[in-house]
Structures are given as C-alpha cells and as structure tokens.
C-alpha cells in the first residue's frame, strides 16, 4: 500500500502492527458484518498516520474487500493517508495528534453514564504524549473512574526528528501515568501472547482507566527500517519493497 502510493509513515505502521493484529484477532469485540453494532468495542487510532496497519486489519477481517487496499492514498480513495471515519470499521478521523484520547474519553463517559460494558481502546504514539490535551483527558478519565477506557502507548522511543529521550523525555512514564490515577502495565508490543492476555476484556483494577505501555520497535520486521527515523518519511522503492517482503516471508510474518 505505502509503496504503491509513494506514501510516508511505514515505520509508524510497522511499530503497531502486532498490537493491531492482536486487537483484531479477538481482543476487540467487533463484527465485520455489522460495523456499527451497538455493543462493539470502540477502537480509536489517535496516531492517524499509521492507518495502513488498521486498513490492512479491517480488510483482513472482512470490513471491506482487500481489493480496496490497492486504492490507498490515490485520488479520492476512501483510504486516505490518515485514518478516516468514512472507512467501515474506523470510528474516528485523526491526523492531528492529541485528539484521540479525549474523543475516546467522551465515548467511555457516554458508555459509563448509560451503563454499557463495551470498551474504548485508544492507540497513541509516544511523541504524541507531548500534547497537553492528552493530560487533560488523563485527569478527566481518572476523576470519573472510566475503567472501560484503555490507552495503549506505542512506545517505540522515536519521534519525528529523533529519539523521544532527546526531544521531550517521557520518563518516568509509568510513574507519571500512575500519578495521574491510571492503572498501568507494560508489555513487549510485539509479543502476541502477552498482548492477548493484557488486552483481554477483564478490568485490571476497578475504577481506574488503563494505560498499556507497549515497548515497540519502529519499522519492526524490516531490518533496514528498524529504529530508523527516516522511515517516518520515506516510501520503499521496488527493490526495498522486495527485500522487505522477502525478509518478512522468511520470518513467517508476511
């Protein structure tokens, strides 16, 4: 998709691909036959630029035909290069960072006030945590005890111009989130079994919103992309695409 569209952000998408795979292979209660099913879990991609990972999962699970993926990033395609709520199965259009957690908090609040048990899961980037609006939402969700709200932070330690640590360091991240009243867990964001366990519907702690710090590798699975800032921007050329796919096939991931 990304190579065909000559698009950016492949590194960001590969960073979350394992998380998204676990979410869409059973962790989330969703039904491709009824994308707007009232009791579905609401998944919000706040780091909207990594949308190819979601589009692939939605196509793979039957929300729309796989054929549509070929139109990604082309003129007037519904699959624009930031996540779009006009795509079946996508709840929210993002692209500007720092919006998804607040929007998800509103959904979780609506569910809580009406006594619904469905979950709201928001996938965020690490660089995005510098947006103040996220910390506003953190305060609100904890104060209102929104324990069906889960924020997953894709902690790949890289952002646009370099490392998170050299930009605006987040550490001690778990302690910050805990201090904001959230219950916090950490996970290897590429370990499917561990992700499936921690993302199961069971509450971690009654009365507290959940923050999952997923330790990830930007560009995961493609050797020449891993941990390289430039793959936030570059699109693979045909040789690079072939090399990437061959590498993934060798590891049984393609």
């Amino acid at each position: 998709m990304v190579a065909r569209a000559d698009a950016s952000h492949i590194g960001s998408a590969l960073s979350i691909t394992d998380i998204v795979a676990v979410l869409y292979s059973g962790a989330l209660r969703v039904d491709p036959a009824e994308p707007r099913m009232p009791g579905r879990d609401r998944f919000i991609l706040s780091k909207g630029h990594a949308c190819v990972a979601i589009y692939a999962a939605l196509a793979e699970t039957g929300f729309f035909p796989r054929e549509l993926l070929k139109s990604y990033g082309t003129d007037q395609s519904p699959l624009m290069a930031h996540i779009s709520h006009k795509v079946p199965g996508a709840e929210f259009s993002a692209g500007a960072l720092g919006h998804g957690l607040s929007f998800g908090t509103g959904k979780a609040l609506a569910a809580a006030r009406r006594g619904f048990d469905w979950r709201t899961v928001v996938l965020m980037s690490d660089g995005e945590m510098a947006e103040g609006s996220n910390w506003e939402a953190m305060m609100f969700a904890a104060h209102h005890r929104l324990d069906r709200l889960t924020a997953i932070i894709d902690y790949n330690k890289l952002q646009s111009l370099g490392t998170v640590a050299d930009t605006l360091g987040l550490e001690p991240l778990a302690a910050k989130l805990t201090a904001f009243g959230w219950t916090v867990r950490e996970v290897d964001g590429h370990d499917h079994a561990a992700l499936a366990t921690v993302l199961s519907p069971t509450r971690w702690e009654a009365g507290k919103p959940q923050a999952l710090i997923a330790h990830t590798t930007k560009g995961k699975g493609v050797g020449f992309m891993e941990n390289r800032v430039e793959w936030h921007y570059k699109s693979p050329n045909p040789e690079q695409l072939a090399e990437a796919l061959a590498g993934l096939a060798e590891n049984g991931d393609a």
Binding site: S102, F103, G106, K107, A110, G132, A137, F140, H144
Partner: peptide
C-alpha cells in the same frame, strides 16, 4: 459535567459523547 479548565479536552470529549 465540569470538564475543568481544559477546553481542548472538553471539545473533543463532547464530540466523543455526541458520536454515541
């Protein structure tokens, strides 16, 4: 609800509630 002195969260959260 009182969103507190936090208008950005108030507006997005209102959108989230409205979507429900």
């Amino acid at each position: 609800f009182n969103a507190g002195v936090a208008e950005q969260n108030m507006a997005s959260m209102a959108a989230g509630m409205a979507s429900e």
